[in-house]
């Protein structure tokens, strides 16, 4: 464990807390993509299936349970919460996720770290899907132009988590002999690259004060 990975995990937890605060606390799903929320639930339920047999680290075990629980809670409230459904904009949240899930599934089968292990195929699928899972959310924000304050912090924390993981991988590559994880490195790079435009606008709007809303062209 290094500081970059720890801060990355904390940023990931923060993104969940912000989203839960908005959806469950604020009873509003305005500006939030259910499609992204559902893809994240798929990402965690597939990748963390090793909860059933891998007890290597209590820290990982607890956070995996937290991430699965939080992502399913978010999907549940967005689908069945009366006030959440009322504020959720299904028409605008229209990114065709089948064009994301299918290629990731094919890639997961073809490119993984042990072709004899079904779990490795599922694990690779989950890594690829996470890289593109934010697209419906960014697509929705782009359509709406203005990003509500809490939502902007949620997306920023979610983007920052994988950016911090990139630093974690660089650190591990430099300090650990023959450490290599090409699949997560490339996927993490793509995932973080997708946020660049948002990061830019987030920075532009927040440098004038944390409560300014983010405007996307």
């Amino acid at each position: 464990m290094n500081i970059f990975r720890f801060l990355g995990d904390m940023s990931h937890i923060l993104s969940f807390l912000l989203l839960l605060h908005k959806i469950v606390g604020g009873k509003s799903a305005a500006g939030i993509s259910l499609r992204t929320a559902e893809m994240y639930a798929i990402v965690f339920c597939t990748r963390y299936i090793d909860l059933l047999w891998n007890f290597a680290s209590l820290y990982n075990y607890l956070l995996k349970l937290l991430f699965i629980g939080a992502s399913l809670t978010i999907v549940y409230f967005m689908r069945y919460g009366p006030s959440q459904k009322a504020t959720y904009n299904a028409d605008e949240d229209a990114f065709p996720v089948q064009y994301l899930i299918a290629p990731c599934a094919v890639l997961g089968v073809l490119i993984n770290q042990d072709h004899s292990s079904p779990f490795e195929m599922v694990w690779a699928f989950s890594i690829y899907l996470e890289a593109v899972a934010i697209l419906p959310q960014l697509f929705l924000l782009q359509k709406q132009g203005e990003v509500e304050n809490l939502t902007s912090h949620y997306v920023f924390a979610l983007g920052a988590y994988r950016a911090l993981y990139l630093l974690n991988w660089m650190f591990r590559f430099m300090t650990e002999p023959d450490y290599q994880q090409r699949i997560v490195w490339l996927s993490g790079l793509v995932q973080t690259a997708l946020y660049c435009d948002f990061f830019y606008h987030y920075y532009q709007s927040k440098k004038g004060g944390l409560n300014k809303s983010v405007k996307l062209p």
Binding site: R5, D9, H12, D50, N54, A56, S57, N60, L63, K64, F67, Q113, D114, W123, Y165, N168, D178, Q180, Q181, R182, V184
Partner: peptide
């Protein structure tokens, strides 16, 4: 390709 790793990260 076979890469020696255990999934020690989230």
């Amino acid at each position: 390709e076979q890469e020696d790793h255990e999934h020690d990260e989230l």
